[in-house]
Design a binder for these strands. Structure first.
Lengths: 113, 113
DNA sequence: ATGGAATATAACTGTAAAGGCATATTTAAT
DNA sequence: ATTAAATATGCCTTTACAGTTATATTCCAT
């Protein structure tokens, strides 16, 4: 069962486009943390932290490792590879268009009519 | 360690994290387009397209070149460079942590208490 | 088994943003 | 001058989601 290659999708981006969730992600750069630790450091209520972590988890940004009472959340690397690839592809397209002078050609065509 | 990435902010990500705006951005891969062309191809109302373009413009994703009656929108490259750099920095941090066995160390520390 | 700690979740509220409609503004053409 | 085309913007409604509170669940310790 070859897993489908997860592409770029808006909901993944959306999960990162929220201040508290971005703060969580930045916090997890340094390694895994429990819900309580995350809530404490970011001064969020526990349910609030859990909710944001669920969004991040549903979008594949983080993964959980239960350890007795606690749940350790940590970043997954895949979404960041996907985002990097996506962003790079845009830069390549833009460079290519510059090389081919598509802009200039298109501009001329537009002025023709 | 590993501070914030200059230029990366959630509202920029948020401007891309909406289906119609993502569609606009993908459409603009091929070059600049007018509001009307964008609205037609994506089957959006003209005001709707204009509104989304304003969000993208306010966040530096696109730039405008007025040409008589029309306004040509095209992608800016900077935000994509910023996003790529940001995503790359996360992968580097994760690789580094793997190399340093930070996970293991942290796990031990956590179990100590 | 009982109590407490850590976490998840359901129900609720408030607010911000998407989407639609009408209109203002700018420019070209006649 | 007048008309038409392209675009922006303001107002309105609806929907989505962040945030709070209360409660349920799970696990450990005694």
């Amino acid at each position: 069962m070859s897993g489908k290659i997860p592409g770029m999708n808006v909901s993944m981006l959306g999960s990162l486009a929220e201040p508290n969730r971005m703060a969580i992600v930045e916090l997890l750069r340094n390694g895994s943390l429990t819900v309580g630790e995350i809530a404490n450091r970011l001064e969020l209520s526990q349910p609030h932290a859990s909710k944001h972590l669920k969004v991040l988890s549903d979008n594949g940004i983080v993964e959980v490792k239960p350890e007795a009472n606690r749940r350790y959340y940590k970043l997954r690397s895949e979404p960041f590879r996907v985002i990097e690839y996506w962003a790079t592809s845009f830069q390549k397209d833009m460079e290519r268009r510059l090389d081919n002078l598509d802009d200039y050609v298109q501009e001329l065509q537009n002025k023709k009519q």
